[in-house]
């Protein structure tokens, strides 16, 4: 497989699946993607969502809302660009 083909395949994956890494993925991007994936998984798994709701003594809908809101900027603002 030649390099051009590999690259185009990678680009295809990156456009199709949000969060697919590339050679220049920064720590921030990686962290943000991981956090968003984690939160999405929490919301999808109802037992986990209700487990959190019990610990926080909130309604499940409130916990879900909080987690969804956190997905907007889970790791704070992005770092200043250096280049």
């Amino acid at each position: 497989m030649d390099r051009a083909n590999l690259n185009s395949q990678l680009e295809h994956l990156q456009s199709k699946y949000v969060g697919t890494g590339h050679a220049d993925t920064s720590k921030y991007e990686w962290g943000v993607n991981q956090a968003r994936d984690t939160y999405a998984s929490y919301i999808g798994h109802y037992p986990m969502l209700s487990y959190f709701a019990l610990a926080e003594n909130e309604s499940i809908a409130r916990v879900k809302f909080n987690i969804t809101e956190k997905m907007l900027q889970p790791c704070g603002p992005p770092p200043e660009r250096t280049d």
Partner: peptide
């Protein structure tokens, strides 16, 4: 499959 951010179903 799986509960993923990029796969609908929620």
């Amino acid at each position: 499959s799986g509960c993923r951010r990029i796969v609908p179903g929620q």
